[in-house]
Every structure is written in structure tokens, then in C-alpha cells.
Design a binder for these strands. Structure first.
Lengths: 152, 152
DNA sequence: TAGTTCTACCTAATTAAATAAGGTGATGAC
DNA sequence: GTCATCACCTTATTTAATTAGGTAGAACTA
């Protein structure tokens, strides 16, 4: 589905999505119209979901982050999900198996703000929280190649 | 630190970082050189950490994701951290307070692969895993404005 | 107060990039 | 063997980014 050239293009774009077609073309040994066509197809196929910018939460005043495990009380699952959707402080949120709950990231400016946010869902779910101070260790996209199993 | 125009520019760029300067300029009511200058400064200040692409893990064959809680055995914290850094299947990873451990995302192609990865750190840490099937509910950057507390 | 500096913006000209148009050669289907 | 199709190419055109130089207003200084 993805060939080696596609993977190389994606690798470069993950690092800097403003890399020009000319530069991309040189690096993979194609002409720029060919690269443009490949990128267009990667987008069409949904491989590239978006061109975006990564923003430093600290620059916006979010000096604290928290990973929250939210287990909705019986019958409240959809209500809780709606709540989460509506609160901008929630970053990525995953519904996980096993203990049937959500695991979400919260961006906050203080412990106080965190408490207030958790209060909002307190009567609809059980929560447990782990605080992350300052910057996460690592943020990365899925691997493109050369995984521990090397079966791309 | 960030004024309203900056926030509006960031909002547009989060949605599509290829938006042209001309288009950005029109939307916020500036000229394109002014917008270019603002973006340059946002990058210099570290507010914009990177221009990047968001890639669909499924398109790369990662049909499964897992959130893993990793609690290193006494004295093994740095070894575990090094291990995580070296395994490409690990996505974002946070060191969290409270129970003194890591919370990380793993991209895998099968439960078998997940087991093999966890085996690698089994003698150095305790782990507990929650599986995410298919797509996460939501992935989002920190809020730019209009938070639950509206104190930007 | 008058002069100076700084900042954030502008317009116009230049340079660079993306796109569109049209062509070639290899591969596979009928 | 002919005809499509595909992925690529080059060249020309269009569009975008950058550079250079200038202006108005705020704050700073003598």
C-alpha cells in the first residue's frame, strides 16, 4: 500500500511539513510534480490526516497536564462522553477496553482548575488522576518503518 | 504574551498548516508580510513547536493501540526510560507523579506484538495495559481560548 | 516639549514555489 | 500486436513567499 518513497516523504513531512516540493523531490529522487501527486494521493487515501502545527501548551499558560482515567457510572457513558467533548481542556481521549473507561489528557493552569474540571463529572463517573508536570517525556507519531518487528 | 491575532492565526494553522499567508492575512485583516513576521516570531518563541503532518496509524498497519502504565522496579527508572526511547512503537510517553511511573501509548499490529513488546521490559518494570481498538475518540491540541475558566 | 527610537504595520518589487499541460516509456489486458 | 493505464518526466504558467524600503504612532530621553 505504501511504498518506500511514500514512507520517506512522510518521514520528512513529520519533521517539517513546510518542506517544499522541490526539496522533497530532491531528497527522494523524483520531480516536484510527481511528489505533489504522491502527496495528493496520500491525503485522498487518508494516510495524511492533516497538515497541522504543534503548539507548546506552556506557551498558552498550561503549565500542568494530567492523565485522567474516567469510569462512567452505569448508564452514564454517553453523558460523560458528551461532557468531555464539550470541555476544551480535554486533549486526546481514548475509550479503552478492560475496565471500560476513558483515558484522557487534561491541559490546566493549576491544580485548582483541575479540581474544578473533575468536579464537573464527579456525579457521573469515578475518576483517578495522575499529574504530569511541565513537558511530557516524548510525543511521537506511529513508527513509519524499522519497528521492533520490522514487518511493514 | 499572545494577542488575539496570534491566537486566531494559530487556530487556523492547527486546522490546516498549509493555509497561505495571503489567506491568513485576509482572515485576520493584516498584510501577508505582517503575518509572516508574526509566524516567524511565534516559532522563535517556541509557541509553534513544529509544522507537521498527522498520520493515520491504521494506514500504516497499526490496527491496535494500547495505553500502558509502566512502573519501573526500584533503581530501574532510567533503564526503562532508555528502553522506551529506543522502541519505535512507543508513541507519546509521560512521566507521571503519584505512583511514580510512565504512561505511554503503544502502536501495534496485533496483541501478539503487544505482548512481545511488554516482555522486553517485564524484568525491569511492572506494567498494566488498557487496549484501544481502532481510533481514539478524540485527539486535540491544548485549547487556545474560551476554556472552562476563560482566563487566557 | 522636541527629538529620537522602536514597533508593528504597510506597499511594491523580486524571488521562489506550486500547479497545469502535455509527452514518454514500461506494464498488463484483451 | 494494439490499446490502456500508470507513474513519471519537462516546460510553461500561475500563485505564493520574501525582501526592501517606507510610515504612523507609542514610549523614551534630553
Amino acid at each position: 500500500m505504501l511504498d518506500d518513497l511514500d514512507r520517506r516523504l512522510l518521514e520528512i513531512l513529520i519533521k517539517d511539513s513546510r518542506t517544499s516540493l522541490k526539496e522533497l523531490a530532491q531528497q527522494v529522487g523524483l520531480s516536484s510534480p510527481s511528489v505533489a501527486e504522491r502527496l495528493r494521493r496520500l491525503e485522498d487515501r487518508g494516510v495524511i490526516r492533516a497538515f497541522t502545527v504543534e503548539i507548546d501548551p506552556q506557551a498558552l499558560g498550561y503549565t500542568l497536564q494530567a492523565i485522567v482515567r474516567i469510569r462512567p457510572l452505569p448508564g452514564k457513558l454517553h453523558i460523560v462522553q458528551k461532557l468531555i467533548e464539550g470541555i476544551p481542556e480535554f486533549g486526546e481521549c481514548d475509550k479503552v477496553t478492560g475496565d471500560d473507561c476513558f483515558v484522557a489528557r487534561l491541559f490546566v493552569r493549576s491544580i485548582g482548575d483541575l479540581d474544578k474540571l473533575l468536579d464537573r463529572i464527579a456525579d457521573k463517573a469515578e475518576t483517578s488522576t495522575a499529574i504530569i508536570k511541565a513537558q511530557p517525556i516524548r510525543r511521537r507519531p506511529p513508527p513509519l518503518a524499522a519497528t521492533a518487528f520490522s514487518n511493514p
